[in-house]
Amino acid sequence: MLFGSKSIPISHKEVSEQEAIQAEEWVWVTRVREGDRGAFDILIKRYRERLYGMVYHMMANMADAADLTQDIFIQAFRSIHSFKGKSSFFTWLYRIGVNKTLEYIRHNKRRRFFSLQAMDGQAVGEDFWRFTTIHDNAEKHAYLHELQEKLNEALQKLSNKHRMVVVLYELENMSHSEIAAILKCSEGTVRSRLHYAKSQLKEFLKEYAHE
């Protein structure tokens, strides 16, 4: 993880790691500004998965998310000269991503259908099944598939701003301060949105709460 964990206070070591990452990013950005396309490819490779993850979780559509992620990178490439280095490149890129994603969702309100990626069964982990009485692999697979659909439905029921906070905090493991920097709002707003969104999600997913 590039940034400090949300639950553990950031240590001096982590701060110096962040500074080192920012310094390295700045080198790549400078090279892109000087016309080095290869440097931009490196930045794309570094952040594509996280950026795509955010866009995908917001839209729940693979093809649209891939397309939009590419557009976000192009937009970043176009406006790389406006990057002042006040925040990390990643925060700057995410800000573009968040704005473009929200804009896309607003403009395509009616064009909403799911196109979900398969879940990586191995990544779910044994811890998850501790709460369930399911042991058979086929049953687990069916359960996961059903749950995936319900989760996406529940997330899509949230308003854009609430969904964004949940995605950034729970799925992208960002801290409140990082989210506040990206969304340009206060940490209190982030916390309050998160609290509201979670209570909504609990209500939507209550049938899965005590499996």
Binding site: E170, L171, L201
Partner: peptide, 15 residues
């Protein structure tokens, strides 16, 4: 905790 676990499931949707 359960909600967090359920949401974490979404992270396992990997291309």
């Amino acid at each position: 905790e359960r909600l967090s676990q359920l949401l974490k499931l979404k992270s396992s949707e990997r291309p």
